[in-house]
Design a protein around this nucleic acid. Structure first.
Lengths: 134, 134
DNA sequence: TTGAATTTTATAAAGATTCAAAATATAATA
DNA sequence: TATTATATTTTGAATCTTTATAAAATTCAA
């Protein structure tokens, strides 16, 4: 993803495209690893030595608010993030620890029932991935 | 749920039915609130003044291991627990904060695909509950 | 270029969880 | 019953993630 497009995307959501925000979004969009704050920090601190974790927390919170990112609570301890905001499932391999995306048919999703307003759906599966089974 | 049956249940899972474990299981089984460690601690400390949170952490971990309880990660910060271990959905009302159960048709559940071993499924929905909409 | 608003940074504080060791309770054996 | 071994609980400190606060730096517009 080229920077110019990241910039346009943030601006389309009324987010000022600061250097840090651009870098954080670009990283998130280019990885499939569902990184934590810690991971993002480690990936970027070489390029941005002044970077503080607080900036990452603030930025991700802003992205989630503006629906540029999703917060994933599949891990017990730390928040994970995903730049893909359309509905999809998350598979966590309890052996290698990776979190993988998989498509889900939205029309088949369970529904809490009449009278409930649904704003957000998470579908988490835990088990062993094909690579770890061999 | 009477204590005798709690005792039998724990014993059937090879868990020594200590006083603390019995009380913690009974509380978890009799509430629909999906309590946190903190909540369980506050509920029980009057009856068991010596109780420590560490015991609750240890006990719940043991229960989850032995499939007497489920760990629910719908909250960003704290772990919640549920004595119902069969597959069902969780709805979190972002207004009143309550976490409610709802049934889901297991045969319709999305599947990560061939080659994946599935051990555990979580289905979380966030939104507004009927009570809070009025 | 100046000044106001925003963003980033550094530091501290809070909250949840884990660790290690001591104290207590339970079970097994003599 | 007394003794010993084992399991459980408690305590207090440590760690880890996240949040709060305020100062410093940066950006933007006049």
């Amino acid at each position: 993803m080229i920077m110019k497009n990241v910039k346009l995307l943030l601006e389309s959501k009324n987010i000022r495209p600061s250097f840090q925000r651009l870098k954080i979004y670009k990283l998130l969009a280019e990885t499939k690893e569902h990184p934590s704050v810690e991971t993002i920090y480690n990936e970027l601190k070489e390029e941005i030595p002044s970077l503080s974790k607080m900036t990452i927390y603030n930025t991700l919170e802003l992205f989630v608010e503006k629906k540029l990112a999703r917060l994933i609570t599949i891990e017990e301890n730390e928040a994970r993030f995903d730049a893909i905001t359309t509905i999809h499932g998350h598979f966590k391999c309890t052996k290698c620890g990776r979190i993988l995306d998989f498509p889900i048919d939205e029309s088949l999703l369970p529904n809490p029932g009449n009278g409930f307003t649904v704003n957000d759906v998470d579908f988490f599966v835990r088990g062993i991935c094909p690579g770890c089974r061999n």
